[in-house]
Design a protein around this nucleic acid. Structure first.
Lengths: 209, 209, 209, 209
DNA sequence: TATGAATGAGTTTTCATTCAT
DNA sequence: TATGAATGAAAACTCATTCAT
């Protein structure tokens, strides 16, 4: 995770702690994970947790933000000159990379049931991630690649479908670069893309003869 | 209110209990909700919970299954002779109805982070819901309306997008029959529909000049 | 049990209640038995218990006293003109009869771990039982049949050994009139009888040559 | 007790806990004793109980086994070359010592109404105690010192009478080395000893003239 | 007299957090 | 900085007892 050395962590205690907590929170759930468990897995004493984090909840939030920043960084690393579709696809694929080698980070950000435990700062980071996608989608809309409708909506839709792909990737159910994964990325795009032939036009009001 | 009918509420205790628990579980989360809170909101004594449900967890599961069955019934109530797209649209709209007047039921089924707490019976009910959609999608695939790819995948994709629409409806962020909601239903379909013009063909391999 | 009709108990509800409680208290223990269990086994409603007994504890005490009186009556029914040994033997045998057909009554009086729950009245009844035996033992002592030492002690000793016999009889481990049972009754007597040859005289100070 | 310093118990917390629980269980009974009471008497916090024992029941069992082992050890410490009567007498006397200075240990093992709460391991320990006595009695039978009849029966009879003596000793009702105590030990032996003159031969069938 | 749903005080147990070492 | 025993507030759950019917 990107530079987080608040203080010199000679023994990597904080690092071990973060890894242990991330593993346990995403496998067992936050409430099902106890601080003794975290300490045991990190190979440290229970009290030591509180030298690095003020509470279990803060530990969760810290991890959440670190993981989310990972995905945000990924967005920033893709060329902003690409057309909307390509850019989103690049992002999806680099996220898939992350989900592949850090499945728990992906789970924490995209699937974990921890919403009620996030503090304002974490929610802000979460919003930042969404905003980045939204900006890209808005640009796509401006250039006619994305369907009419709120950019916020299309960003949310795209994220939902991509979240599914990431979960399956994290679960090793879909190996990267396999059709299923590829299909899902395409599906996410088709969900929001313009130029739909819109086959059977208005379903509720069939065209009169 | 006149009178104080605190006691002797022979019929309706369970009902009040279910409503209180549903409200609290979906607003605060399961773990954040305590049995005293449930009892207080239901206007009953804490011990009374256990005359109706053997545990807090069983209460959750009972509510979950009741809510899920609501959505399953909705599927069964739509004509099975309709083409895939129309059928899915009908389902989405009737689900939206439910989400509109029973927002918490929708939250419990589609957004709630309670997966690890569901018992086998509940998981079966959950599977049933997914299977119903999957069957419809499979039929759509057979008739060429749905894109190639696993029906399970497309059902999951469709459900994710619809879940977003239901959450927003439950949150009163999207009034039913307004463009946003309508757009999301269409997006869910376009994500899985065949006959995509597939504009910029293969994204990884851009067309050579 | 001997005439206990405080009020006309037309449906034998009290009777059923007593039997159910006796069964459950002696098989499962007092604390392990719940009032719903008692009611269910008696075939009555939970609240009905409190029409006949003011509390679960009073129910226990009432049963305890009824059972103890059964054994006391047995003593009074044996001829007081018999020699000590014969009288005790007759008592032991009639008690064995009771233990055989009312095992739970025997368990309640002789083996059950309910001491801390008995009220003063019950303790009095318990004392009465012991006093009856003590009187007989005292008479035996007076006529030289029982060894020197406190009559209270010898009564207690005799009761302990007989209690063992009654427990085994109640458990159907020792059928009545079989050697084991007979041996135990004799052992109870030998424990307290005078005229022991006192074989190896003083155990701590072996006789010098 | 054998050196049991599993972990450094700097403050003797476990020790205090055991003593408090032993006191309360034997004076009030297991069910009548609450965990707050135990903690208060031990001068510790309630939660601390569970750092040393996984449950109230386990605490009871641990104490029970420790106490029972005390008495078993006492048996093993007596010379096995002694004649049966002398050996049993030595055991009784050393047990009396224990009952004198650790009255609650004696109560827990010999009088306590906790049978239904003992776990298999504890029952095994209980059986071990009985088996030790049974072995000695069986040896006595083999050498003609103990009456005919099952060794198991005679061991049980002897134990019952000795239990009475131990209870009275624990209650400080019988000071050790006083006649009452001595008499009871003798009574226990006479109950099972051979060579009884068996005065009035067959009690049920009095000798015809 | 009988009922049984409702009660609520009381129980055991958990676990994030503290603090003397 | 690290430790881990001790803490105590709060959790889920039990069950003898009450009372409107």
């Amino acid at each position: 995770m990107p530079g987080t050395p608040r203080k010199r962590d000679v023994h990597g205690t904080r690092e071990k702690l973060v890894r242990a907590a991330l593993d346990l929170f995403t496998t067992q759930g936050y409430h099902e994970t106890t601080t003794p468990q975290i300490a045991r897995r990190a190979g440290i004493a229970e009290g030591t947790i509180y030298r690095h984090f003020s509470s279990k909840e803060q530990l969760l939030n810290e991890i959440y933000r670190a993981a989310t920043r990972l995905f945000i960084q990924s967005i920033k690393d893709t060329s902003s000159t690409l057309p909307c579709r390509e850019r989103l696809e690049r992002i999806a694929k680099s996220w898939r990379e992350i989900a592949h080698h850090s499945p728990n980070a992906a789970r924490l950000v995209f699937q974990s049931p921890i919403k009620p435990l996030l503090d304002p700062k974490s929610r802000e980071t979460e919003t930042e991630l969404k905003a980045e996608i939204e900006r890209i989608v808005a640009a796509g809309k401006a250039s006619g690649q994305v369907r009419i409708g709120s950019a916020e909506t299309w960003a949310a839709v795209w994220l939902r479908v991509i979240a599914l792909m990431l979960e399956r990737t994290a679960d090793k159910a879909w190996p990267p670069d396999q059709p299923a994964s590829q299909n899902a990325i395409e599906a996410a795009w088709f969900a929001i893309a313009a130029n739909q032939t819109s086959p059977s036009a208005a379903p509720t009001t069939p065209p009169p003869p």
